[in-house]
């Protein structure tokens, strides 16, 4: 029982980060049908800035805002330079464009920094735990969960209560009609990328803290987890993305504790197999959005 609770908290902590990443992927997918394989770069770029900032003598208090701001700006910049030029193109083109962007950013760091691992210090409280009864809760997990709840609440408020949120939702459900109502396509798309970047920035703060180092390909894993979580939840559904992230995090942690010791390092492989099974039996994801075939 204790172990299960412990695992649940670990899983939620992990899943919260995935949920934020997936939500960012889903927001952009909703608005321009782009599955953003470059989403992980919103962690790579701030990751290198973190490394740079610590070398300049910054500390986590100043690095955290740097991560968030740089993630938002990177997201906007990538939209401006690459994605704005392929708006409305085929899915094939959109997918490869984002894949190419990932590659350019990674290669850029390879070119101008180096392939080697660049470390920076984790925050002092990183490994601290709080004992609650027989549970040992990591402060890090707790922080992730609390911050995620706050950010999700804020995002919900943004989407439900502000005109920007309404415009975003309207444009996601029917882009042309939203424009007929006067929603400006440029603003709403940029807004979506800014929001996506902000969510990635929050997730990035924790991801970057946890990793303690950065490499040119550091974005691949967060990208994959975000994209998979969005797909598990059902592409196009924002709630699904959050749910997918939590499910993915829980699955990883629970599976790791249940698998026999010898094959524990194959956890990720098993998670993928489970995802594959999910797609086979429920192709649209957990909260699938009905797809109407148009003649």
């Amino acid at each position: 029982m204790t172990e299960l609770l412990q695992n649940l908290i670990d899983g939620l902590g992990r899943g919260s980060i995935y949920a934020l990443l997936a939500l960012g992927v889903a927001v952009v997918f909703g608005i321009m049908h782009l599955l953003n394989f470059a989403h992980g770069e919103l962690i790579t770029i701030p990751g290198y800035l973190t490394y740079w900032a610590f070398n300049q003598g910054w500390n986590w208090w100043t690095v955290v805002p740097l991560i968030i701001v740089s993630a938002v700006l990177s997201s906007l910049l990538i939209e401006r330079v690459a994605f704005s030029r392929v708006r409305g193109a085929s899915d094939f083109t959109l997918l490869l464009t984002s894949f190419g962007v990932h590659f350019i950013v990674a290669a850029g760091f390879l070119l101008y920094v180096s392939a080697s691992v660049k470390p920076y210090p984790r925050p002092g409280w990183f490994a601290d735990t709080i004992a609650v009864g027989s549970l040992n809760i990591e402060v890090f997990d707790l922080a992730v969960i609390v911050v995620t709840i706050i950010v999700l609440a804020g995002t919900t408020w943004l989407l439900q209560r502000t005109m920007f949120g309404l415009a975003l939702r309207a444009a996601a459900s029917d882009f042309d009609t939203a424009r007929l109502m006067g929603v400006k396509s440029d603003s709403v798309i940029r807004g979506a990328f800014a929001l996506s970047g902000f969510l990635a920035g929050i997730a990035g703060v924790f991801w970057i803290m946890r990793e303690g180092q950065v490499t040119p390909t550091a974005g691949i894993n967060p990208m994959l987890q975000g994209v998979l979580a969005a797909l598990i939840g059902g592409l196009g559904s924002l709630r699904g993305a959050v749910l997918g992230g939590l499910v993915l995090g829980l699955a990883e942690v629970l599976l790791r504790s249940w698998l026999p010791v010898g094959i524990q390092n194959l956890t990720t492989g098993f998670v993928f197999v489970m995802i594959a099974l999910l797609f086979i039996f429920r192709p649209g994801g957990l909260l699938s959005v009905p797809q109407v075939e148009r003649v």
């Binding site: 005109m163 939702r169 459900s173 009609t177 109502m181």
Partner: peptide, 15 residues
Amino acid sequence: FADMTVEENLKIGGV
């Protein structure tokens, strides 16, 4: 906009 409430639909109209 089917997923949005009546009020939200109207608000979008007045964006």
